[in-house]
Write a protein that binds this DNA or RNA. Structure first.
Length: 202
DNA sequence: ACATTAACGATGA
DNA sequence: TCATCGTTAATGT
């Protein structure tokens, strides 16, 4: 199976999978960071997932054999592993441990989005930004995320569903509370526990 | 109240 | 030089 995996590099800003593309592969991020987003007819953008190093994604379209409902874009220079759909399905059918692992992944992702809805409904904007940021450090989903990630405030804002200006204010508050340290085009998580606690405040 | 967009200058890579 | 950041003003709900 290892020989069927291909590895491709993407420069920042380039498209990994176009929207409506056929689901030819299941993919994993080896280096860098991707985002999953949708664009409406009017051109409004909704980013719904950041995909850091260590994450696998795209199995939904593969399982349904439907065109990808979102675009996948590299936020930084990235390296992506691609497993052909046929190999993914064979693995799923033949390997019980793999199937269990995949169920665990899907369950962890569901838990993430359930908690995200709660934060968006009950939390203030700082909590929303804190939750979106902490989500990139979900140990069940992305075991390899580095403490410092390259991500602009603009992109984190898109991920959080708030404007860049509000994101900037929220991040400064998180820094005041010693949860993170801000850099130029990057964010370093100092205390993930504190960040997660702030994400639960309302 | 509090968020959004637009706009500005400052600054880092 | 260009992306990014920090801030303010005007506007909307």
């Amino acid at each position: 199976m290892r020989k069927t995996i291909t590895v491709r590099s993407f420069t920042a800003g380039s498209t990994v999978f176009a929207r409506s593309a056929p689901p030819a592969h299941w993919a994993g991020v080896m280096e860098g960071m991707l985002k999953l987003d949708n664009i409406t007819e009017e051109g409004r953008v909704s980013t719904f997932a950041g995909v850091p190093s260590g994450a696998w994604f795209g199995e939904g379209s593969v399982l349904k054999d439907e065109p990808r409902p979102y675009a996948v874009t590299a936020l930084t220079d990235s390296v992506v592993a691609l497993l052909p759909r046929s190999e993914f399905l064979r693995l799923l059918h033949e390997s019980h441990p793999f199937a269990l692992w995949l169920i665990g992944q899907l369950n962890a992702r569901l838990a993430h989005y359930v908690a995200q809805v709660q934060t968006d409904r009950l939390g203030d904007t700082t909590a929303q930004v804190a939750y979106s940021l902490s989500g990139l450090f979900n140990d069940a989903l992305f075991p390899n995320t580095a403490r410092r990630i390259t991500l602009s405030q603009e992109e984190l804002g898109r991920l959080s569903g708030v404007s860049r200006q509000v994101t900037n204010r929220a991040l400064q508050e998180l820094q005041e509370r010693d949860a993170i340290r801000l850099g130029y085009g990057s964010i370093e998580v100092i205390d993930l526990k504190v960040l997660q606690a702030i994400a639960r405040e309302g």
